[in-house]
């Protein structure tokens, strides 16, 4: 079996398992899993930049929020139906990431991290500033009637599950195609050795900018779909915490692997779900896991699989 066939089978297999789970899992987990799949899509977007291009952003929440508000604000204030509103969400993410990328990519390393953090903070504060429209921290709810489109009702749990799966599966297979394409291989080359990639004649800035825009747009897709499926938009999704979480998911699941973001998001979601049953200080767990991962398991779960089981894991 060729590496490509193996990779396609693995990822289609994951999608099939998630499809089957809908019929097996108790109802309580349907909502959770839908959320995990949407957040995993966000993490996949993050991973394209962090895991595959080697650029550590601390500001991806602004892209997630761009999608979320691009969708939710057009529905709430302009009365748009979900399809064009979703598109507005994607577009907001694409435009914002192109802008931020063009500026932030003039810096490297730690400065890049801080610049993205600062831009994201500015985006968060901007949402607070326009509280009249965004309802700030408190956020606002999208009514069921506003979310129905083409006879589909995203507030129905089963529908919601399958919509989340559809988006997740699409982004997963797109990512698989991307990282195996010539463009994706150049991103990996840049991650591995930027100098060498440049001296092979690759335009580093253009490739990085492309990565930022693809990554930002995928994150925005997750944000827009989140608003659609869960009918809510709030400023906390633009806060620092939501920039840190995808980093945590990806580190845990394995940076630079396609299944890593999903594994990380799933694991963290249930970890927090369980801990928050005991204490309101559940973010302590997030902190401790971040420290432990950095100290003891840099590769994450996916990285371990790659090291021990299958070197070709995409």
């Amino acid at each position: 079996m060729t590496e490509t066939a193996k990779a396609v089978i693995l990822h289609l297999g994951l999608i099939a398992v998630l499809f089957a789970l809908q019929f097996v899992l108790p109802a309580y987990h349907h909502g959770n899993m839908a959320r995990v799949m949407v957040l995993a899509t966000y993490a996949m977007g993050y991973n394209l930049l962090f895991g595959y291009t080697g650029l550590l952003s601390l500001g991806h929440a602004m892209f997630f929020a761009a999608g979320m508000y691009g969708m939710a604000l057009t529905v709430r204030h302009l009365g748009w139906t979900p399809p064009p509103a979703l598109l507005a969400g994607l577009l907001s993410g694409a435009v914002l990431s192109a802008l931020v990328g063009a500026l932030a990519l003039r810096t490297v390393g730690v400065a890049f991290m801080i610049v993205t953090l600062m831009f994201s903070q500015a985006a968060y504060l901007t949402i607070l500033y326009f509280t009249t429209w965004t309802r700030g921290e408190e956020g606002f709810v999208l009514q069921q009637v506003q979310r129905v489109f083409w006879g589909i009702d995203p507030s129905d749990p089963t529908t919601r599950y399958f919509l989340a799966l559809l988006v997740f599966a699409t982004c997963l297979m797109l990512s698989l195609w991307l990282v195996r394409s010539g463009f994706g291989k150049v991103l990996i080359a840049i991650r591995e050795n930027e100098d060498r990639a440049q001296m092979l004649g690759y335009d580093i800035f253009a490739h990085k900018l492309g990565a930022v825009v693809i990554s930002g747009t995928m994150s925005a897709t997750a944000g827009a779909v989140y608003a659609l499926l869960f009918g809510y938009a709030g400023a906390s999704f633009a806060g620092v915490q939501y920039s840190i979480l995808p980093l945590l998911w990806v580190l845990l699941g394995g940076a630079g692997t396609l299944i890593g973001p999903f594994i990380g998001a799933l694991f963290t979601f249930y970890l927090i779900d369980i801990t928050s049953g005991y204490t309101s200080a559940y973010m302590a767990v997030v902190g401790a896991v971040l420290i432990a991962l950095t100290l003891f398991a840099r590769q994450g779960i996916g990285g371990e699989i790659r090291a021990r089981v299958w070197r070709g894991l995409p």
Partner: peptide, 23 residues
């Protein structure tokens, strides 16, 4: 910029070896 010169037909090897070690 460097990548345009490479595209114009130059190739360069580094004094301190520079390859993609993990590929």
């Amino acid at each position: 910029p460097a990548h345009r010169r490479i595209r114009a037909g130059m190739a360069y090897t580094f004094q301190i070896t520079s390859v993609f070690a993990r590929l």
